[in-house]
Computed example of a mutant assay.
Amino acid sequence: MADPSLYTYPSPLQGYEGLEPLPNDKAADGKSFINPPAEKKSDAYNAFVHPITNGDRAGFDVHIYYFQSDPEETKFAHELWERIRREFPELRIYRVWDRPIGPHPVAMFEVNIFTPEQFGAFIPWLVINRGPLSALIHPNTDEEERDHSQRATWMGQPLPLSFKIFKSSKPT
């Protein structure tokens, strides 16, 4: 995993400076806070935030892994791949690889997500339906190594990726 201290982070409150303090009133559950209504919904409902790609490249990649030496996992992965193709035809779904490829240490297949709406539908579906398989979810920006490491989210057991491919593609 990339060391987070290698990067800079803008303040999460950028653009919200100088506003009145938020109330400390509790909601009906007695635990969460009541938030004042927003003037409009966040733009993040309709487009991925910068620097995540919005367009043909896809905003997020999901890599779903299986151990190619395990016949049960292999069968499950192929069945999951077929189900995703049938239930989410609007997503871009790649072939099932039967061996490691790129930075990925075991066999896998990839699904591309293009909109926040697709992300909101597919990711919860995958949480429930991925079975024993691990999945890496990462955004697509111009920083591939960071996308696959510091910005990545895992479902299930994380697997060690090989970042050599990203280092060899950088100019020397």
Results as ranks from 00 to 15, higher is better:
Asp142Arg: 12
Thr115Pro: 00
Val127Ala: 03
Asp147Ser: 08
Gly131His: 15
Leu159Gln: 11
Gln150Ala: 13
Asn140Gly: 14
Gln150Val: 11
Ile137Cys: 00
Asp147Phe: 06
Ala135Phe: 15
Ser134Thr: 12
Ala152Leu: 06
His148Gln: 05
Ile137Glu: 04
Ala152Gln: 04
Thr153Cys: 15
Leu126Lys: 00
Ser162Glu: 15
Ile128Gly: 01
Ile128Asn: 15
Glu143Ser: 08
Trp154Cys: 09
Arg130Ile: 07
Ile128Ala: 14
Gln150Tyr: 09
Leu136Ala: 13
Glu144Arg: 13
Ile165Leu: 03
Ser162Met: 14
Gln157Pro: 10
Thr141Ser: 11
Phe114Ala: 01
Arg146Asp: 14
Val106Arg: 03
Gly120Lys: 10
Pro116Gln: 07
Leu159Ser: 11
Leu159Pro: 14
Ile128Val: 13
Gln150Lys: 04
Leu159Asp: 07
Ala121Cys: 08
Pro158Phe: 15
Ala152Pro: 08
Phe109Gln: 06
Met108Ile: 12
Pro139Trp: 02
Asp147Val: 13
Gln150Trp: 14
Val106Gln: 11
Met108Pro: 11
Glu110Thr: 15
Leu159Gly: 03
Asp147Trp: 04
Phe119Tyr: 06
Thr115Val: 00
Pro139Ala: 12
Lys164Ser: 04
Val111Gly: 07
Lys164Met: 03
His138Gly: 05
Ser162Phe: 14
Thr153Val: 03
Asp147Arg: 12
Pro160Ala: 05
Pro124Tyr: 03
Phe109Asn: 02
Arg130Gly: 00
Leu161Gln: 09
Ala152Met: 06
Pro124Ile: 01
His138Lys: 07
Ser134Met: 06
Thr141Phe: 09
Ala107Leu: 04
Arg151Tyr: 10
Ser162Ile: 11
Ile137Thr: 05
Gln157Glu: 10
Pro116Ser: 09
His104Phe: 06
Gly156Lys: 06
Glu144Leu: 07
Ile123Thr: 06
Thr153Arg: 12
Phe109Gly: 09
Arg130Ala: 14
Gly156Phe: 05
Ile123Ala: 14
Gln118Thr: 02
Asn129Glu: 09
Pro132Arg: 04
Gln157Asp: 14
Pro160Tyr: 05
Phe122Met: 01
Pro132Ser: 00
Pro160Leu: 12
Ala107Gln: 07
Gly156Tyr: 11
Pro158Thr: 04
Ala135Met: 07
Ile113Lys: 00
Asn112Trp: 12
Pro116Trp: 05
Lys164Phe: 06
His138Gln: 14
Phe163Ala: 02
Pro139Phe: 00
Phe119Cys: 10
Trp125Pro: 09
Thr115Gly: 00
Ile113Phe: 02
Arg151His: 14
Thr115Glu: 00
Pro160Val: 08
Thr141Met: 06
Pro124Gln: 11
Leu161Pro: 07
Glu117Val: 02
His104Trp: 08
Arg151Val: 03
Glu117His: 11
Ser134Arg: 08
Ser162Val: 14
Gly131Trp: 04
Pro124Thr: 02
Ser134Phe: 03
Thr153His: 14
